[in-house]
Design a protein around this nucleic acid. Structure first.
Lengths: 181, 181
DNA sequence: ACATACATGTAAATAGTTACATGATTTC
DNA sequence: GAAATCATGTAACTATTTACATGTATGT
């Protein structure tokens, strides 16, 4: 799903500025989608030109005027059509797993460090998601589900890492020793 | 990690042609990295020009000659340096979760279909990974771990989907009814 | 003093996919 | 007769990030 349609989706939940849309990507969306200002602002400009969103300007003091966007009827039609036709395809890109794939090329300390770092990242992510769950009274059922989904995946991985850590490190050490001989 | 360095990594495991590297991305790598011919062939050309890999040509009958690539010493140095400095950052992009995020905008049948499709995808992925684990006697410890990691994550999500399916569907139905009134 | 939040936007650069071009052989 | 496997490569296109440009207010 591209940034254009994601913006339309967000605007179905209520009007928002580009800046506010970015904040949503950083909180509720962050574990499964990303978008920067450099893609959001051009997307909103394109959507406006195409008549899929409209905006009013709220004057700000000592700041650029705030553009508050609303979705239009044609915009609503497009996102509904998009949601009806999008396949549920996932893609995962992990530099951690690339590192693990080539673990035999890493120094033991480096491997341990990478492992610890990933565990730390997972814990932080889980904590962030749990916080959103607890605080967010305004979350829809669908949103709650996406967060539970993230927590479940991260927890499973975290547990695997704990149980497999020792065996992995020693297995790799064995392989490295074997290669040296 | 970009395709250039991933190719170097693969070539650390042994010599290979572009076509064979692609096959690795489709099997052992597929759950956490992707690369198409359109990126692999130019990457190998660039690496050759930079002296990070070399190749010999194996003549084929009625086919383009096979170029079998090997990593060179400078290439090995570069990938070692890259592996030593790469942060274990992960990114996950899920159209399924986008769909769930906006589940209240989906028709109930569509929602059920998307849900079933995702469950099916997960089952297939788990089966593929388990097959690789069982067959692959030549897997390194690190590779085995990446596969176990994929299985653990997918299984956790699959289980969550089973346990939450009914409640989610009814929660969303409630929200939709609520909106209509 | 420095970072962060607020608020918009552009331009260059990056990185990749998709589709095309070629073509024999084998499997369904 | 169609699709998959083997085998290489290019070119156009897509989407996105990063860095820049501008500037105040507030918190650390």
């Amino acid at each position: 799903m591209d940034v254009n349609n994601l913006c339309l989706g967000v605007l179905c939940l209520g009007e928002a500025s580009g800046y506010e849309i970015k904040k949503m990507f950083e909180s509720a969306f962050s574990h499964f989608q990303a978008a920067s200002f450099g893609s959001i602002y051009p997307a909103l400009a394109k959507l406006t030109e195409a008549g899929l969103v409209s905006f009013r300007e709220e004057p700000q003091e000592k700041r650029p005027n705030k553009k508050v966007f609303q979705i239009t009827e044609p915009g609503r039609r497009q996102i509904m059509q998009k949601l009806a036709s999008t396949e549920p395809a996932d893609q995962y890109r992990s530099d951690f797993l690339v590192l693990m794939m080539f673990a035999h090329l890493l120094a033991p300390e480096r491997l341990a460090e990478v492992f610890a770092q990933q565990a730390e990242n997972l814990k932080t992510e889980i904590a962030t998601l749990e916080k959103i769950l607890q605080e967010g009274c305004h979350l829809t059922a669908g949103m709650r589900f996406t967060i539970e989904y993230g927590i479940a995946a991260n927890q499973a991985i975290y547990r695997l890492m704990q149980t497999r850590k020792q065996t992995l490190l020693s297995e790799i050490k064995q392989e490295q020793d074997h290669r040296e001989n």
